[in-house]
Design a protein around this nucleic acid. Structure first.
Lengths: 230, 230
DNA sequence: ATTTAGTAGTGTAAAAAAAACACTTTATAA
DNA sequence: TTATAAAGTGTTTTTTTTACACTACTAAAT
């Protein structure tokens, strides 16, 4: 079947921009890069790149993320496509935003330095170029909704973590204080955690039990979803 | 500031495809068109078009929808961007899917006929071209989630409707039977309905009260969201 | 050796929300 | 007048959510 191509007039550049979330004891953070090219040289922005002819959007997002963090197995999700006509002053460009959750201790620090990237707490993040602030806002809202309907944390926490860390993660995503006992009861009711015989003594003299996720039950809950409602 | 343009190599065609939902006594339906052009001439597909240089995606979606239905004030939401490299056999094309909710009785029947379009119940819809089946599936999932977190119905129902119609709408979106009394109690607890002194006698001898939405309270609930959980 | 300080860990009762459930009313047509 | 078919209406039970306070543990300071 020899098909004529569609008219050529309205082809458009497509960017992929990534909102990269990480979590450490300072709370929820995003990874930003300082631009070393025009336009907006020297300003902060999300990590991004252009979609290539031979890859789909997920692949582009993975490529871009690996470029910055060195990581391949990352939780990632397409967020929204931004299309304001003049959003990029250089040339009409659409941007498909992705958000990613990564374990902040797993990435390649050298790579990040080479890209002059830096982690920022959400409330201390600088103003970003173009419509990137709006992208971050939308990603936060999506992350919040997701945290209430599916387990999250596996992607953001180290493989062993304390109950307190998990709670703090949820607190910084939902942006509110949670009751310790209610939180534990709820989490335990999902049956996705395994308590180890190890303790973490960094944060207290008594030491706090370390947990891991029961990968199988975790994935089950990711599929079926749950109702956090806390 | 004279900026050089980005490299020109990877510009791509962008389509916008619309999943158009309607509702009548047969249940939830989608509007499909029979293609009168290649490729896939004669097959069924979603209504779509290409993004133009001087419009953003929302504008393109509105334009495309008006072309088919004649309607302008439509509830519409961007759904997802589909990007598989070979999704369109003619040429690399990305498609941004939008879904729309319209009052099935408000559209321009002539327009629809001219476009050889037709309403289909979801379970009786034909196989669609390209990745359009996947788009419909994703739209259904989104619609379901949305119906549980915000009021919906204003967009799909005529301005006056019976409690039973509203319940059937929810039943066909959620794809399950609901208890009559629990449904009414829940809906009333939101305070978004106004009961009129009119009755609709099409469906029963006794006649059922007609309701309208209290636009102000409805919009309030759209903003703050609610927890349907039924 | 004792005290102090700081975080970890634990359960129950009250309130709110959701689910289950069945009979009466009404108007028309037979 | 009777049969029919959908409309309308509340209460109880169960489940889920929320509110709430004390003891346990260990290391460091005295």
């Amino acid at each position: 079947m020899a098909l004529n191509k569609y008219s050529n007039t309205d082809k458009i550049l497509l960017a992929v921009d990534c909102i990269i979330f990480g979590f450490d004891k300072g709370g929820l953070k995003i990874l930003l890069i300082k631009r070393d090219f025009e336009p907006e040289l020297g300003k902060w922005s999300l990590m991004g790149g252009f979609l290539k002819e031979d890859e789909n959007l997920d692949e582009a997002a993975i490529r871009i993320l690996q470029q910055l963090t060195g990581l391949r197995t990352i939780y990632m999700e397409q967020l929204y496509t931004f299309s304001k006509v003049d959003r990029d002053p250089v040339e009409r460009t659409l941007s498909v935003a992705y958000y990613a959750l990564i374990d902040i201790e797993m990435h390649d620090e050298e790579l990040i330095e080479n890209n002059s990237a830096q982690w920022f707490s959400l409330d201390k993040a600088p103003d970003l170029i173009f419509d990137h602030n709006q992208m971050v806002e939308k990603a936060m809202a999506r992350l919040k909704r997701r945290a209430l309907s599916k387990p999250i944390g596996f992607e953001l926490l180290p493989s062993k973590f304390t109950m307190r860390q998990l709670q703090k993660l949820y607190e910084s995503i939902l942006n509110k204080k949670l009751d310790k006992r209610n939180f534990i009861n709820k989490i335990n009711s999902f049956g996705i955690l395994v308590r180890l015989d190890e303790k973490d003594t960094h944060e207290s003299k008594k030491g706090a039990y370390l947990y891991t996720f029961d990968k199988e039950k975790y994935d089950e809950k990711v599929l079926e979803g749950f109702n956090f409602k806390i």
